[in-house]
């Protein structure tokens, strides 16, 4: 009994310790952000490995999610003879929820885990420590460019995801199931509000981008410098990002759409 209480206490202390370290680390990153202006090439390089390399999986997943959405919503809507609102149903669910959330989850799996593994491995092979001894700040040289690249990529990828998915829904709904093309788009435009829906979706993806980037670089930087430690850090990145994104999505949805 006492033993389990003690281990609970140790666990809680460990959680608080990591929480504190994570926030101090974030503070450190934010104070070094000026590197982005002085050395934009570093960020562009990371935008390539974080953003461009994730593009394919995001676009393909978007297409399929949109097509499935088109199918499923059509099946439900046609029962009420309301298949002409298919466009707005597809667009609303994508722009508000699925776009930012699914993109963030895919991003954590594709780019976040790679970032953690890369940084963790650099730590394991003493590259970060070596930089420090060469009078190069690894936070500025390694962490900040990756953090910023991830933070920029996610909203862009989320927008691409939503756009491709709406096309997917259009192919299925209009091309395959025979919904009228005009009412597909006009219903969409009538029901999707730019500020209420599109903007809130973008804000969501910005928040997710920040959190996903932070978790990925922190887990890598904080990894135990062994091969097992790096693999655990990679797993933790995916799990923690997924949990954080879903929980934040709930909170943000409540704040944004709660009054309707």
């Amino acid at each position: 009994m006492l033993g389990s209480l003690a281990s609970l206490g140790r666990w809680a202390l460990g959680v608080f310790e990591r929480l504190g370290r994570g926030h101090l680390f974030l503070l450190n990153i934010l104070m070094s952000l000026h590197v982005v202006v002085t050395r934009p090439r570093l960020v562009i390089r990371e935008l390539y490995s974080v953003g461009v390399l994730s593009l394919l999986i995001i676009a393909v997943s978007g297409l399929f999610v949109g097509m499935v959405l088109g199918y499923q919503l059509y099946i439900t809507l046609v029962r009420f003879g309301a298949e002409e609102v298919l466009g707005s149903a597809v667009a609303l669910s994508l722009v508000r929820e699925l776009g930012p959330v699914v993109t963030a989850l895919l991003f954590a799996g594709r780019a976040g885990s790679a970032l953690s593994a890369e940084i963790g491995l650099m730590k394991t092979t003493e590259q970060l420590s070596g930089m420090e001894m060469m009078a190069v700040d690894p936070i500025k040289r390694v962490i900040v460019p990756r953090f910023v690249a991830a933070f920029i990529s996610l909203p862009l990828l989320a927008a691409i995801f939503s756009a491709v998915a709406i096309m997917g829904g259009y192919f299925i709904g209009v091309g395959l199931l025979g919904v009228d093309s005009g009412s597909f788009w006009s219903q969409m435009q009538a029901n999707v509000d730019f500020y209420e829906d599109v903007m809130n979706g973008i804000i969501k993806s910005l928040v997710f981008g920040f959190v996903a980037a932070w978790i990925a670089v922190f887990e890598g930087y904080d990894a135990v410098p062994t091969s097992e430690g790096v693999s655990r850090a990679t797993t933790r990145t995916v799990v923690h990002t997924a949990l954080a994104v879903l929980a934040l999505d709930f909170i943000l949805t409540g704040l944004m759409f709660g009054d309707i």
């Binding site: 491995l121 092979t125 003493e126 590259q127 420590s129 070596g130 060469m134 190069v136």
Partner: peptide
């Protein structure tokens, strides 16, 4: 101060030339 790490700690994504140039370029 220079330091030679046990593992070498070379930057794996840079060539030999760029590794040696790294501290100079950065500083």
């Amino acid at each position: 101060m220079g330091m030679l790490f046990q593992t070498g700690a070379l930057l794996t994504d840079l060539s030999v030339f760029e590794n040696v140039a790294f501290p100079v370029r950065e500083n």
